[in-house]
Each structure stands twice: as structure tokens, then as C-alpha cells.
Design a protein around this nucleic acid. Structure first.
Lengths: 324, 324
DNA sequence: AAAAACCGTTGAAACGTTTCAATTATGATG
DNA sequence: CATCATAATTGAAACGTTTCAACGGTTTTT
């Protein structure tokens, strides 16, 4: 592999000059530039990015740390993250934590050692502690404080919106279905929005939740359907699209049909092709916008800018499907 | 940030010794190791992976180059790739090419400059040329020759299997639906298997394909349904699950119902949750196995081993759903 | 007691780049 | 033509690690 030294020798110039040519520094005479470029071509020289990162003590690698790329929401999110990063000359490193705190910490350590330029994280952990580092971080859906900027959808508005739409569809009693986690997350506002709007509308409502550590499809729904106060529920707002889909499936087994007997609204809006049926009515998070905003904010932090907010909520919208 | 030098000074040893401690080289006296570890802890020293990569002239970064992480098949594949790589201490860099040749080449150049340890690629391009490099490569579904090892599912057997299952389900005339690309790919064997098995079974069959550059849902299916020789088709084998899902949807609009009027089998087996309906009958590629095999082979190439085959075909299986 | 063998340790060199103080070349001015 | 100002170029130093020839100390062998 030819190095910058080889190019310099062949072109009959100093290494500094070659470096300036490569980095498009304008203070180099056109004819010198010519010579250097000729030498570069002749030797088939390509700059060693690793050496450059080393010398500069920084890289253009951004890590995306999420529970699982396999999940449709995250894979769409990752798609836009990569696209946005690439447009700015950054590269994406993908880390699946499985939502496990130990793995999250393990990855944070690794990212530290690897001096990534920044991190976009979707974590279930109290990451502030693992982050003694000064690597810029964007957190999705979880607000930690000044140091870590949070990007999220307007979960509260989404919760209210869901109830409004259910009421508009003519339901008389609504239920909130949720999977909770042991850490605080903006996602909790979906429930708050639901409750507030149900009370504002003066409609009967129940909430029903289970912790993700013990969550099990069968137990969860069997419990739900067996409770007396759930019998007359005819409107469902589920925490996530996946939970909504599971509900619809389970309800069908109990001969409760959607949307005939019960209207269902999910949250996320991840369906984008014919493989996904039924087409859910849902509160759609603007995934692309959230991804691009995350990248934009992260890069601004990397550039050393201080952001004016430490939480950014992007508006959601209702997308009508076949389940209301 | 403390460096190895700082640790050495504090521990009162040479830098070489610290290096040996970090790298678990056994030729260091226990009490020295003790001292060094104490110094490491005291200074909160973490090794600089970038410097190490630089010095070693190699990294532990593996790139996954694919059309789009958004696609369910690729996102499942990526999930297992990341898992397998992480288990071996490697990291994953994700590159979405959009299937565009120019972007594929652009990424290959970039990966070269970044001296990644290896590449796992799902490409639509004649990549041999862009790969003057000696970076080990695994290619999914496309066989290029000795230099690039190919991992694929047994497409031919899959094609035959699909016909066998359709026949078993009682169909009398089968159609192959496919999207083709301009480059050779193992995927073409799905069609060959289909044709061979249809002839072996002595069943009527047609094949119907469109190039991906001009593919359009409406045109494709309107054309398909309008042809006289397609009227009595009652068994469909679609190139991919997504195409199968689209067919089912379009057929429904024409009042051709699945599986009552027509049995449909797809290829891939990407459905894994309740969001995906109907549950397709499909030829399932063992995604996890393919991913782990890809990583295993790649790492063996990275270690300098020469592999005994240049194409590895892993067996597929039939998974019965609701569409046959 | 000298020589040999072994063990543990040392620290300079090297990896390929960028940077910047120093140097040289070029051009303008009086 | 000498002087000065400016433009262009040079190359050593530095980034943090690994490696390895050399070294000193201890034990074993002769």
C-alpha cells in the first residue's frame, strides 16, 4: 500500500503538500496540485482513513444503539439515520443491545474506546452514569437531562389524539393497553394523554398495563378479557402497533371482531407494505423526521454547538387504517 | 485522556509491560501485573482502540452492505450478523446502497479507505472490479468466483419444493411470479427449480417476470391478470414473500381469493409477528443460519484461511401458512 | 566460580497522517 | 538591484499503540 510519503517522493514534493492537495487546501499552486494528482493516480494511492482518524483523535463514525434492528420501527429508523449520516459524510455503526442494561453498558464502553464521534441511543438503562465521557449523545424517547439531548414524538398529543379518534368512530368505553418498563420514558405520556382526553371527553375508560419483564402474550390478554370491567370496552388504544396487532388477533379468537365489535388504534405507524395486515389505524410517529432531526442535532453537538433545548418533540399524526 | 505512557509512569514500569498487561500476555510477573492494573484503575485509563487499529493496520470492523435495512428480510439478517460478529469481538458498520451500483462502488471505496476487516455484501453490481483490494468478502446470493465467497439458500431446491407443495395442495396449473435484475444471481435458480419440478410433475405451468428497473405493482399485475393463459392458474409461486403478498392483495381486488381460488407460496419466510397477515405459506430461508455461516466464513477468511468451497448453499424448508 | 540458560522488563522505532514553524521561491516596490 | 511582502512549500514532531532487539537479574549447569 502506497503512503503519502511515496506520493510525495514520486511527485517530488513534501508530504505536507500532498496532504494539502488531498484535503483540498487552496494554498497550493495549480501546477503542483497537478503533479501530485498525477502521482496519486499513478500509485493508486488512497488515503488511510484509520491513520487520519488516529492523528485527528476523532472519527466520523456514529453509533446507533438500539434494542433490536429486527423490529420494524427500528429498522425504518435506522434506514433514515444511515441515509442522513451518509449525506454528511458520517458512517454508521450498529449495536443491538437487546434492551439489556449490561449489554448497553458494554456497548457504551466499547464506543468510548473506539472514540466514535457520537451516539444515537434507544436505551432502557440509566445511561448517564456509563457516560462519564464527553461523546455527544442523542437519546430517543428518554429524557435524561442537559447533557443528553432527547428526541421523541409528541406522545402526550398522540394519546389524546387516539381517544379523540376513537370517540369520533363512535366508541363508548375506551381501554389503554400498555407494556411498561422500569425506567422513565416519554412513552408514558401516551397514557397520560389518553387519560386526560378521556376525562375531558367524559367517556368511560380503563387502563391495563404489564411490565415488560414479565409480559407474556397469553397471560396478558387472558387476564384482560377475563376482567368484568373490560367486557363493554369497544375502543382500544394500544401502546404500540405490535401490541394492537396482538390484541386484534387475540380478540378474534374470542369472537370479538375489529372493527365491527371494537375499534383499535395503535402507535408507531410502521406498516409500509402489503405484508402487514390488517392495515392498522394508528398514531404515526414521523420516523423519517425524527431520524433526520436526531442526526442534525447530533452533528451540531459534535461541532461543539450547544443546543437550545434538551428535548425535542416532533408532532404525530393520525393515520386511518382498517381497524376503526 | 491518560495514555499508556501515563500508566507506565505511575506504575513505575515500561510501556511495553503495560501493553503486555492489557493484552493479557502471560509473560508478566503477577506482582507487576498487579501494580499496572492498580495504575490503570487509578487513572481511569481505557485503551485507545483507534490507535491500536492504526498500529496494527487492521480493524475489527466488518461492513454489511445491503440495499436497505428497512426491508424485513435484511433487518432480520442484519440482526443475526450483528449478534454473531459481537460474539467474536467484531463490530458492524451498516451501509445501505439502495441497490444502486454507484452507491455500491462508493461504499466499497470508502470501506477500503477505512480498512475494514471484511465485508458482507448483498449487491446488484459487478463488484469484482471495485474490489482490487484484498479485503475478505462474503456475498449473499451472488456467486462471483474464487475470490468472493458466496452464501445462499438452496434456491433450486426451494423452487422444486414450492411446486411439490402446490401440487400436494391440489392445484392444476402453476405460475411463477418473479422480479428479475440485470445481473446473474442464485435467485434465478428458484425459477429453474420451479420449471424442472413442474415438468417432472407433468403439471401445466407458466412463468411471468418483470425487470426490477421497470417493475410497477399495477402494471405488473394488470398485465398478469389480463393474459388468457393465466386465467386458469390456481397455484402461485412468488419470487419473494413481498411479491406474494402483493399478488394476494391484487387478486382479492379481482375477486380471486386465497386460498379458496388460488394457493400461494412465497419465498423468504420473513414473517415473525402478528403484524404480518395473512400468514404466508412460504419457502423459508434459514436466515439465522445464513447469517452465522456468513460471519464464520468471513472471519476464517480474515484469519487467512482458504475456504474449501466458493459457494455455500444452506437448505430451505417449507413453512405452511394460511395461503395454501 | 564462570558460563549458560532463562525470565521479566525496557524503550526506541514504526504505523500514516496532519500541523505548523521555518524556509524558500516569487513578485512587487522604490 | 536591493528590499520587502507574500505565496508556496518543507519536513520534523506528534498522535497512542505494539513489537522486538537488547538488557539485567536470577537460577541452573559445567
Amino acid at each position: 500500500m502506497p503512503s503519502i510519503k511515496d506520493v510525495a517522493d514520486l511527485a517530488g514534493v513534501g508530504v505536507g503538500t500532498v496532504s494539502r492537495v488531498i484535503n483540498k487546501n487552496p494554498t497550493v499552486k495549480p501546477e503542483t496540485r497537478e503533479k501530485v494528482n498525477a502521482a496519486i493516480k499513478k500509485l493508486n494511492y488512497i488515503p488511510n482513513e484509520v491513520a487520519r482518524n488516529f492523528k485527528m483523535q476523532k472519527s466520523t463514525m456514529v453509533a446507533l444503539l438500539l434494542p433490536s434492528i429486527w423490529h420494524p420501527f427500528f429498522s425504518e429508523f435506522a434506514y433514515y439515520i444511515e441515509d442522513a449520516l451518509d449525506k454528511e459524510g458520517y458512517k454508521l455503526m450498529l449495536c443491538n443491545s437487546g434492551g439489556r442494561p449490561d449489554k448497553e453498558i458494554y456497548y457504551f464502553d466499547m464506543l468510548n474506546q473506539n472514540k466514535v464521534a457520537g451516539i444515537i441511543g434507544i436505551t432502557y438503562n440509566e445511561i448517564e452514569d456509563s457516560v462519564s465521557t464527553d461523546i455527544p449523545i442523542i437519546s430517543l424517547d428518554r429524557h435524561f437531562g442537559k447533557k443528553i439531548t432527547c428526541v421523541t414524538s409528541d406522545n402526550y398529543a398522540g394519546g389524546r389524539m387516539a381517544v379523540k379518534e376513537l370517540v369520533k368512530a363512535g366508541v363508548t368505553k375506551v381501554a389503554y393497553l400498555g407494556i411498561t418498563s422500569s425506567v422513565y420514558s416519554e412513552v408514558l405520556l401516551r397514557k397520560k394523554g389518553f387519560v386526560d382526553e378521556a376525562e375531558a371527553q367524559g367517556i368511560e375508560y380503563v387502563t391495563y398495563e404489564e411490565h415488560d419483564a414479565v409480559f407474556d402474550d397469553d397471560t396478558f390478554f387472558d387476564d384482560f378479557f377475563s376482567k368484568k370491567e373490560h367486557q363493554d370496552v369497544d375502543g382500544i388504544f394500544a401502546n404500540t402497533d405490535l401490541l394492537a396487532a396482538k390484541y386484534i388477533d387475540k380478540a378474534k379468537q374470542k369472537e370479538i371482531y375489529t372493527p365491527k365489535d371494537v375499534k383499535v388504534i395503535g402507535y408507531d405507524g410502521i406498516q409500509d407494505n402489503k405484508l402487514f395486515r390488517p392495515f392498522l389505524s394508528t398514531i404515526r410517529q414521523p420516523v423519517e423526521e425524527m431520524a433526520r432531526l436526531s442526526v442534525e442535532l447530533l452533528l451540531r453537538k459534535i461541532e461543539g454547538e450547544t443546543l437550545d433545548q434538551d428535548i425535542y418533540r416532533v408532532p404525530v399524526m393520525y393515520r386511518e387504517g382498517e381497524t376503526t
